[in-house]
């Protein structure tokens, strides 16, 4: 797998999410991703960016255009230094929320992307990586 393009963005305020989403859209369009898949990855990104803001006072996201030669895609890595998640399996359940919101962010994101990975350590922070393949 090769990385064709890589950029780092900081998200510490709500309004930072808009330029990030726009940038993501630009790259998705550039690799020829269809409208539905674009919408899915941007929605997923929106969820993860919001989690970072809401639970970890912000963080950084790496936006990469990747290729396996056969298929191109977008990889997003959300990294924060917030409180971490003690029980990941629980957090991945539909409807589980410590903030009395819908609890669909993490499980919904997983359904919207092609590959999903979450790592978290209490007191250290959380890293969520997602990949959406152009035709995935």
């Amino acid at each position: 797998m090769v990385v064709l393009n890589k950029e780092l963005m900081t998200i510490v305020r709500e309004v930072d999410v808009i330029p990030f989403r726009n940038r993501l859209k630009e790259h998705a369009v550039k690799i020829g991703m269809g409208l539905v898949n674009q919408t899915k990855i941007i929605t997923a990104a929106s969820e993860l960016a919001r989690n970072m803001l809401k639970y970890a006072k912000g963080g950084k996201v790496t936006l990469e255009v990747i290729s396996t030669g056969r298929e191109n895609g977008i990889r997003l890595t959300f990294k924060d230094q917030g409180p971490g998640i003690a029980n990941i399996p629980m957090a991945m359940k539909d409807g589980y929320s410590t903030a009395k919101s819908l609890g669909l962010g993490l499980p919904g994101t997983k359904r919207l992307v092609s590959e999903f990975n979450i790592e978290s350590e209490v007191g250290k922070g959380t890293t969520v990586t997602v990949i959406k393949w152009k035709n995935g």
Binding site: V36, T39, K40, G108, T109
Partner: peptide
């Protein structure tokens, strides 16, 4: 609602 948005909302679970 745009089709892509409807499909995404359903997949999201909403």
């Amino acid at each position: 609602m745009q089709p892509a948005v409807a499909i995404t909302l359903v997949e999201l679970g909403l």
